[in-house]
Structures are given as structure tokens and as C-alpha cells.
Design a binder for these strands. Structure first.
Lengths: 259, 259
DNA sequence: TGGTATATTAGGTCTGACCGTTAGACCAGA
DNA sequence: TCTGGTCTAACGGTCAGACCTAATATACCA
């Protein structure tokens, strides 16, 4: 007797079950192959892939297909494509940029509230500060100090203030020496920047408080005091978020509100 | 006299200054146009874009160009392309999936340490639990309970245990009702799952502790007790991370270590 | 030596054709 | 009435070949 003979239903039919099958497209096959080689480290950063016409010869695929595969990798941030002689597809490791782009798409596409962005920052950034206090280098400190200087020098120029503000937050994230966290923070910072740049709530007082808070967190990081860093950063981002929330209530113009 | 007449240099040439200009590719132009329309909500989810050949007529571009534009949007998760009759490009909002894919690429591409993943989870998840305790619905609770049931029923089947584990963590994230945070957690959970599924450190004791911890966090969420939720979750993910770190030291096989 | 033409090599775009898959309608046999 | 076969139209997927455009290497000339 066969060990696993398919049983039969009332129709007398075999009850073999199949799952929906996927038939990959040629361009996907090539893209996957190349992606695997890039991620495995077989091609190091900056290595040029063969020219399109050469890939056509090697793969026996049409140029259309080859180009689609390259376009996929380009959008995923795995290659950078240059035109002209000595051009071609150059291997690139995905960086904060592709991450930030995806986050930006998610935020716009899902109409994520500004409040949710601020909440997320409240979750991540204190921890970043803690790690920064543990792992900071002198170079990290220099960047923090530079940002503090810029933000003090910004005066009442909103652009300069916001830019220096973002720079400082990114410097903290970088000092954590956790690339994933810093990538997230960079994405978040950009998104919050974009969402607040046209807001009128940043007045003299907000700027003053921000400068002070940044300095005190910077000091904790300089002194390698993780507890103080996490506490002060937590307080800072929380109060910043609160003042934005208050401002939104006050002005009664809730933007990006969920339906 | 003309108000802004360009001065002339010794060459007799006009001294008009131009900044470096970018010449976008045709496919990018179309992709940007369509992306803008999708994100602005002009096309709602599920609406089909015109067929490729129709876009060719409308845009006066070649089919090659149109297809490249659609491919870009597909990779960015903004459309889903189906072949066959009544096929075409259907509008899609970017979701956790595209986020998770990008995170996965970043992790592999940058060779991010498992330790960094665990750190990141330690940063995010306690905050998720806190929000979950505040905003949970009964539906959220049902999912948590279901995951708890599955994890208890998993016995010593590693697959089932890990899957139920991930389900529970995702359920917590969803209960926070912050789509950005939950998207991040889903990406993270998948990555940690992928990095630990072949590890032998999950023994009887680890499973037991995990089940208990999940239950206690679930209770805090059920009781709408944010403080307890954040405290217990923090303790749970921290001790989990610690035991992985210990295991890695013990087995002395540091994987994905930075150079 | 230094600028300038020219050739070469790459990607970017276009055309037109054909293939493969799918939904739907219709028909024929059990 | 169910089941399967067949046909057609409407899609995306793939292909081959051509030409355009940009960037650069290189030879050339003042």
C-alpha cells in the first residue's frame, strides 16, 4: 500500500492541494541574481557592472529585460547608473537615503499624523542619546559642538535654525554608532523638518529652550553619562512634541489629520 | 535703462550665471507625475492606471519609457502590476512591506550587527507597549491573546514558537495605533526572526520565560496600565537581548561582526 | 604645455513586432 | 447541470534593431 495515497472526495476526485504558484519575470530573475551578488559582497562598492549590451550577451536576454533589472536595482539603491563613456551601473550599498525615501513615502502614502512622527521620535531618540553617551568619539563631539554653534548663530532665521536643529539631532544619532537607529532618525528628522518648516510655532522662546536643551544633552554625552543623556533628551523631545501639539490645538488647523 | 541688464565681461559676453542643471530622464518625469497624483490622493487605492499603450498615446512617450516609469512605481510599492486581460497597474499605498524590504536591504547591505537590531528593538518596543496600553482596542487584545495561545501550543517546535513570537510582538506594535512605529517594528521583527531562526539558543528555559513575560505585558495592556507595560516590556526585550548576547559570546561565533 | 577636435563608449529613447497570460463568452458532451 | 474545450480580445512581457545623446579618452594642433 502506498504510504501517502491521496484521499478522494465525494466527486471521486483526488484531493491534492496546490498553493498558488508564482512565475517570476525574467527581469526579476536577473535583478535577484545581481542583488544577491551585490549583497553577498562579491562586488564591492564602486565596482562597475558590465555594460548593458555585455549583459545581453552573457544572459541571452534582451536589452529591455536587462535594463528593467538594472532599473529595479537602481530604485532599490543598490546601483548608481551613469551615462556616457566609462558610465554604467556602479555598485552601491543601500544607505540612509533609500531608507529616508521609503519612510517619506510611507508617511505621505498613509497620511501619517505629525503626532505619530513625534511619538516615534520620543521612542527612539532618548535611547540614541543613551548609546551616544556610551559610545561617542571625539569626532562625534565635534559635530555636536558645531551644530550647537550653528544653532546659536542662527538668530531669528528660521531656515538656519531648523537646519542646525536637524544637524544636531542627526549628530546625536550618528554618535550612537548604531547604523540602523541613525538611519531611522535621519528619516524621521527629515520628515519632521518637512512637516514643521512652514509652521509658525517656532518663536523666540522655543528657540531659546531648544538651545539650552541641546547644550545640556551635549554635556551629558560629553561626560559619558548615559542616564543623564536619556533623561534630558527624553524631556527635550517630549516638551518639544507637547508644544507642537499645543500649537496645533491653539491654531485649530489640524493638518494631516486622519479621516 | 533696463532694470537688471546683465553686465558684460571683458570678452564682451554676458555674465549671466547659471547653476548646474539636472536633466531628468523621461521615465523619471512620468514616474514623478504619477507618483504625485497617487500620493495626493487623486487616485484612490485599487484604481487602475491606464494601460501602457494608452499612456503612450496620452504622453507621446514610447512604450519603453512608460514601462520604465511603471517599473519604478512598482518597486517603490506604489502600484501593483498584473498581467493578462483586465490587468494593468493598480494603485497601492505603500505599506509595511516596502518598509520591511528596505530595512532588510539596509541590514544586509551594511552588515548590521544582530546586536544593533536588538538595541533598536529595545528602544522602540517598550514605547510601543506604552502606547498600546493607552490605545488598545478589544480587537487588539484578541490578537494578543491568540498569539499567546499559539506560543503556548507551540511546544518544542521552533518554527511555531518563533512565528507566534513574532505575531505577538507585531500585535503589540499594531495596538499602539501608530502606523509608523508598527511599520518599523514589523520590519525589525522580521529581521530579528531571520537572524535568529537558525540559532540554537532557544531552549526550554528561554521559551518558558518568554511565555511568562508576554503574558505579563499582555495583562498590563489589558489593564490599560502604561507604566507597567513599558516597564515589563523593557525588561523582557532587554533580558532577551542579553541572553542572545551571552549565547553569542559562549558559542564564540560572532556573526555579522563589524570589521 | 595646454587647449581643442574627434572618436569611442556608454546609457536613453523609439519603433514595431510577437509571445504568454488571463477574463469572459460560448459551446459540447456526460 | 456540471465539466471541460475553444475562441477571442485585452492586457503586460519580451525581443531585435535602430538612432539619439552624453561623457570621456585620446590624438592632435597651436
Amino acid at each position: 500500500m502506498s504510504p501517502a495515497a491521496p484521499s478522494t472526495t465525494r466527486n471521486g476526485r483526488s484531493s491534492i492541494q496546490l498553493t498558488p504558484m508564482e512565475v517570476p519575470k525574467a527581469s526579476d530573475v536577473l535583478a535577484n541574481e545581481l542583488r544577491e551578488r551585490i549583497l553577498s559582497g562579491e562586488y564591492t562598492e564602486g565596482t562597475p557592472l558590465p555594460p548593458e549590451r555585455e549583459l545581453v550577451v552573457q544572459t541571452k536576454m534582451s536589452r529591455t529585460t536587462v535594463r528593467e533589472a538594472l532599473r529595479i536595482l537602481e530604485v532599490q539603491g543598490l546601483v548608481r547608473i551613469k551615462a556616457g563613456r566609462a558610465g554604467g551601473a556602479f555598485v552601491q550599498r543601500p544607505g540612509e537615503k533609500s531608507m529616508a525615501d521609503t519612510v517619506a513615502l510611507l508617511i505621505r502614502g498613509r497620511q501619517i499624523r505629525l503626532g505619530a512622527l513625534l511619538e516615534t521620535r520620543e521612542a527612539i531618540e532618548p535611547f540614541c542619546a543613551q548609546l551616544a553617551a556610551r559610545h561617542r568619539t571625539d569626532e562625534d563631539l565635534a559635530r555636536l559642538d558645531a551644530a550647537n554653534k550653528d544653532i546659536a548663530a542662527a538668530g531669528d532665521k528660521l531656515d538656519a535654525f531648523l537646519q542646525a536643529n536637524v544637524d544636531w539631532h542627526i549628530a546625536v544619532a550618528s554618535a550612537s554608532h548604531n547604523e540602523l537607529l541613525s538611519g531611522l532618525m535621519i528619516s524621521l528628522s527629515r520628515a519632521i523638518y518637512a512637516a514643521t518648516e512652514n509652521e509658525g510655532f517656532i518663536d523666540e522662546k522655543v528657540r531659546e529652550i531648544t538651545v539650552k536643551a541641546h547644550r545640556s544633552v551635549t554635556k551629558a554625552i560629553r561626560d559619558r553619562d548615559p542616564d543623564a543623556a536619556v533623561r534630558r533628551m527624553s524631556r527635550h523631545v517630549h516638551s518639544y512634541a507637547e508644544s507642537i501639539r499645543e500649537f496645533e490645538e491653539r491654531t485649530d488647523i489640524p493638518l494631516d489629520q486622519e479621516p
